[in-house]
Design a protein around this nucleic acid. Sequence first.
DNA 1: TTGAAAGCGCTAACAG
DNA 2: CTGTTAGCGCTTTCAA
Lengths: 325, 325
Amino acid sequence: MTTIYDIAQLSGISKSTVSRVVSGNGYVSEAKRKRILKAMHDLDYVPNQTAKNLRRQHSNTLGFLVSDYFPLVGEFMNVFVQAAHAKGYNVNLYFTQNKQGEREALDLLATKMLDGIFLMTRINSWSVIESYQAFGPIATWHRVNLPDIYSAYLDHYPVYTMILNRLLAHGYTHIGHVFSSNRDANTQARVRALQDFGHANPGLKLSWQKHFTHQTQAGQNAAKAWLQERIPPQAVICYSDHVAAEFIATLREGGKRVPQDCLVIGTDNSQVAKLVGFPTVDLCFRQQAQNSFNYLFNQLRNAELPVQSLHPKWVDWGPFPQVKN
Amino acid sequence: MTTIYDIAQLSGISKSTVSRVVSGNGYVSEAKRKRILKAMHDLDYVPNQTAKNLRRQHSNTLGFLVSDYFPLVGEFMNVFVQAAHAKGYNVNLYFTQNKQGEREALDLLATKMLDGIFLMTRINSWSVIESYQAFGPIATWHRVNLPDIYSAYLDHYPVYTMILNRLLAHGYTHIGHVFSSNRDANTQARVRALQDFGHANPGLKLSWQKHFTHQTQAGQNAAKAWLQERIPPQAVICYSDHVAAEFIATLREGGKRVPQDCLVIGTDNSQVAKLVGFPTVDLCFRQQAQNSFNYLFNQLRNAELPVQSLHPKWVDWGPFPQVKN
DNA sequence: TTGAAAGCGCTAACAG
DNA sequence: CTGTTAGCGCTTTCAA
């Protein structure tokens, strides 16, 4: 492997001058620059990023942590990584299966092996995560109210209310719900929205509610429960598009028609909603990914990239029929 | 940030001894080890990976390069990253939008910023990619026959023949094809399989063929073309599940029934096939991801992790009806 | 079993 | 404009 020293030797110029042309900092005479460039070319010189990182005490690398893969991760990551690359940042991916693994990844912040971290999904408590913030900026997808951690969240309370109102306007009076873990602040917001809606509209049947901690098979299990009911809900709101898609697939396997027998609604506007064809709400995850990167970048470089507000909206990839009684 | 030096100071023991307990190499007396451990704990010591990497001339990090995101990337990467983590490797993700970007990522091999590379999708010619192999192992998803680059490929010729035969057995005589770029060796294999099949079975209509370089909207555009036909194919084989799903969605939007009006077949066995519900062929991408990592690991560590052979098989997530005339 | 010392490849004062 | 010098934090001989 050829180093800065080799090219200094070959060109008969000092290491530091070579460094100047490699890094582009400082003045170098045209003559010497030419000779150095030639030597670099002749020797196939490639700068050693690791040495550079050690010296500069940062890596131009961001960590993207998820505890588990689920379909939206790929789509989200895609936006995040593109944004990062556009600004010269690399991203390191970590599937943190447990507390220990998550801490190890977080530890990398302390030595600037990672300059900043995006947490799509967390395992450790916020208090331990927060303690790492001293070493570098942290952004998260989760809804959380911490002074030093940026959260790309969108409040699900009004979104859920919006969904319920539309359902009501279309004549639905028996509505089921598939929620994520109650630990999640936005799940709590949804549940609250549901309660308030129930009080405001007495007489509706809203009690069919399922909670799932993991996306794996949540849709399938919820649909199986639906199929068992003597009088199942006319519509079911799922906490993610993937769950909705799986719910629909399982219902159809069970011989039911969607949306005729049950209208299923997702909340992501991910690719699968379009493919399977059901109504969903765009929760702006693409903008959230961009915002998260922008926040991290702004912290790191003292910049002012825009962090835009989010405007959820309906995306009807499938029919939203009036209920027939 | 506390370093090995700080804890040497605090405990009154030399740097090198501290290093021994941190890295776990070499003998250290129990007494000193205890004191050092205590100091490490008191000072919240976190080893500096960058310094370690510079010194050891490797990073325990693999590069995962893709030119563009497409849905299978997420699922594939999931398996690859999990496999890597299980063996103590991290993975760095690169979306290499152009030749330049791909080379920059490949360059990282030279300095062991990256110990090995997996190429899901490439941009530069194989000859330039091959030249990097001197710096570290390279594996790829593409089908390519290069002595020094591992390719996780599965031969699509027999797979395509298998699909055609099943279609024929079910009475299909007019079969359409959505292919990827002809540059791809496995696309060429599919086309050859089709030609040979046509010769062996004269009288079939097999000429409806579309080629797409990118997955984005391939399914949609192909379906639009299908909808224009006076006598469209009874079945269409798509080169990926995502393309198949989009094809189906567009057909349905156009008022057609699937599979009644057109049987659509995918080839991935990705999540979307299950969700949308259509027949697909498992091309074992999960095993391919595992194999790719295992190959890289074997090269790097002179190990013998199994690189297993691939056995494609039908997965009917949706009906495969007999054709009715 | 331990410490001193050299050095991985690069950058950035500093002095000239 | 350029060279000398001193490290970044860690590992690893080598000698004690």
